[in-house]
């Protein structure tokens, strides 16, 4: 499944979904909410998306990975809304015949997601201030 969700991500379901008898490797990547970015503390994150385009781009990223590696199954789920420290914000599960290609495909998918998929995070600090992460001088 490739989707955006406002519910907690069920990683067991994701692993089950990509299991394939022709595959000897499954890689599951989880992007989790980190408390510290440098010296800045985060109390929670808020994710916003341009939903229809984000889902379309997630499908494109999965298709690109499948062109480069013998990916049998791929699931990408991205969480939206308010997330606490430690929660899973994004999950990528890939199955391939051999492990090197599963690692490579999962890393490629995450790199592409960070560049091509219109999903943004807002860092909420202990003092109540909130900042959208748009790079250096936003």
């Amino acid at each position: 499944m490739i989707a955006l969700t406002r519910e907690p991500i069920d990683t067991d379901a994701l692993l089950a979904a990509v299991h394939d008898p022709l595959c000897g490797a499954v890689v599951l990547f989880l992007g989790t909410v980190r408390e510290l970015t440098g010296t800045l503390r985060t109390v929670h994150l808020e994710y916003d998306a341009y939903g229809p385009m984000a889902e379309k781009k997630l499908h494109e990223v999965a298709a690109l990975a499948a062109q480069r590696w013998p990916v049998r199954r791929v699931d990408i789920i991205h969480r939206l809304g308010k997330l606490a420290i430690g929660e899973v914000a994004v999950a990528v599960a890939v199955s391939t015949p051999h492990r090197a290609e599963a690692f490579a495909a999962a890393e490629f998918i995450m790199d592409q997601v960070k560049q091509l998929v219109p999903i943004w995070k807002q860092e909420n600090a202990p003092d109540g201030s909130a900042t959208w992460a748009h790079g250096a001088d936003s």
Binding site: T37, M53, P118, W120
Partner: peptide
């Protein structure tokens, strides 16, 4: 984004297009 695709500055915006401003996607800058 024009009709859910990134568009160059030289691209023509078609009439009735779905248009969106896409700030940098820096989900994981660090």
């Amino acid at each position: 984004a024009v009709n859910q695709e990134f568009a160059d500055d030289s691209a023509i915006v078609p009439e009735g297009a779905e248009v969106a401003l896409i700030p940098p996607v820096s989900g994981g800058a660090a």
